[in-house]
């Protein structure tokens, strides 16, 4: 089972000193946002959750720590993952996401042990754009089948670099 636990160990340390932060610079506006305090840089939500809700969570996670293009990439990826869980994965089970070490990590668990696949390169063949998009925009993707428990399922883990 994947480590969908509390995000304590994944929370980056926020420091009012900007200089050596592990998070990459995303613009002068980011400095003011990184204030000390209980900022939540991790989220875990059990179904039901629609793609729109997941996008809102990702937007909130990336506020001030990623540029517009990076945020848009993350929105595209998370939307495809949630939609795939609903459409091909027997429904979403859990969504989790967090920011750590200059990366956005996403975990989407569903109720199917059918693996995602990309379409053939021929665009006339329907289906598969979504998974190809996820693969292209992420720096790492993993699929973990749930082997314990009675119900089939899998967790897709994706990591995107923040710029």
């Amino acid at each position: 089972m994947s480590e969908l636990t509390d995000g304590g160990s994944r929370l980056p340390e926020f420091s009012p000193v900007d200089g050596d932060s592990r998070l990459p610079e995303s613009g002068p506006e980011a400095v003011g946002v990184r204030s000390p305090g209980p900022e939540r840089r991790c989220v875990r939500i059990a179904a039901p959750l629609k793609a729109r809700g997941a996008r809102a969570e990702v937007s909130r996670l990336l506020a001030g720590v990623a540029g517009e293009r990076c945020v848009n990439d993350a929105l595209l990826v998370v939307s495809e993952l949630i939609s795939n869980a609903d459409r091909h994965g027997g429904g979403l089970r859990v969504f989790a996401a967090g920011v750590e070490d200059g990366h956005l990590w996403l975990e989407v668990a569903d109720h199917s042990d059918v693996l995602p696949e990309s379409a053939a390169p021929d665009p006339l063949v329907p289906g598969g754009f979504g998974w190809s998009l996820v693969r292209r925009l992420s720096v790492d993707t993993q699929v973990r089948l749930h082997t314990n428990g009675d119900e089939p399922g899998k967790t897709i883990l994706v990591s995107l670099g923040l710029e």
């Binding site: 517009e68 293009r69 848009n72 595209l76 665009p123 190809s132 998009l133 292209r136 925009l137």
Partner: peptide
């Protein structure tokens, strides 16, 4: 809008 333009760009479908 940028996120929609990006959808075309990353899927290589802009030129289609």
């Amino acid at each position: 809008q940028p996120v929609v333009e990006r959808l075309f760009t990353v899927t290589g479908t802009t030129a289609f």
